[in-house]
Design a protein around this nucleic acid. Structure first.
Lengths: 127, 127
DNA sequence: ATATTACTTTGAGTTAACTCCAAGTCAATA
DNA sequence: TATTGACTTGGAGTTAACTCAAAGTAATAT
């Protein structure tokens, strides 16, 4: 699979993909004899994982560390697990914040809906 | 309430608070005759709201626009509601991403747990 | 074979959101 | 009253994560 195809599949830019490879967010990608990237199924799984993790704010640094450990082989299994647990804790924390922001937005919007329907602004609608 | 107290209450820096006021994420804050900020209850509600929204990635620009509309009075009720609905859609989208990242992390971690317990790496543990 | 297009690399530039700095003012204490 | 420490402003600097540009090479269409 070419870089273009991967980019279209996941709606990202070639620059981002090359950047990911350059800094090590994904391992080095297969190349043709001409030096052009030819993403294998495994490469694509790494890309998919990177995009998923990044979309939840997992830092590039953490993904680099994970790949680094992965490439060192089975001796790093526990270290990798610990890294994932750390990442999960962060993602969960953010998830909770997003949820409470949703609650706040829903409350505010319901107040606005009421105000717009009845013409009455209760104190809570201030702000 | 002084800037220091507000910062301690919400665990942010004075620089961030001043920045929020400067760019309009919160309306201008009350001052003492000497020009020192003296946050009123209402000011603090604005701060709380800003921190909550920012923690869920609502852009500073959107918060500025909301305050701008708010200060124009009741004629902007609908515009403000629309802005909130727009923000909510974005937050929900992110929330969904965070949730699917959590699912992926939970799956991976469970695989690692198994591998560490049994000493067997199934294919899925790769990556 | 030639022209066009897509790829390559390295390195610089951009963006949002802070974060820090310098110089000055004000308030509280010795 | 002098000093200490917290506040003020305007503007510059930082950071993470891309994003773009320039110059060159390779693959494809005519």
């Amino acid at each position: 699979m070419t870089i273009k195809e991967v980019c279209e599949k996941y709606d990202i830019t070639p620059d981002t993909l090359r950047y990911y490879e350059r800094v090590g967010v994904i391992p080095e990608v297969n190349r043709t004899k001409g030096g052009i990237r030819d993403f294998s199924e495994e490469d694509i799984k790494w890309v998919e994982n990177a995009i998923c993790m990044r979309s939840a704010g997992v830092p590039v640094e953490m993904l680099i560390e994970y790949v680094r450990l992965f490439q060192q082989g089975d001796g790093t299994l526990e270290a990798r697990r610990n890294l994932l647990i750390e990442a999960r804790a962060e993602v969960q924390k953010q998830l909770d914040k997003y949820q409470s922001t949703m609650d706040r937005l829903n409350y505010k919007i319901s107040r606005y809906d009421e105000a717009l329907k009845t013409g009455i602004l209760s104190w809570d609608d201030k702000q």
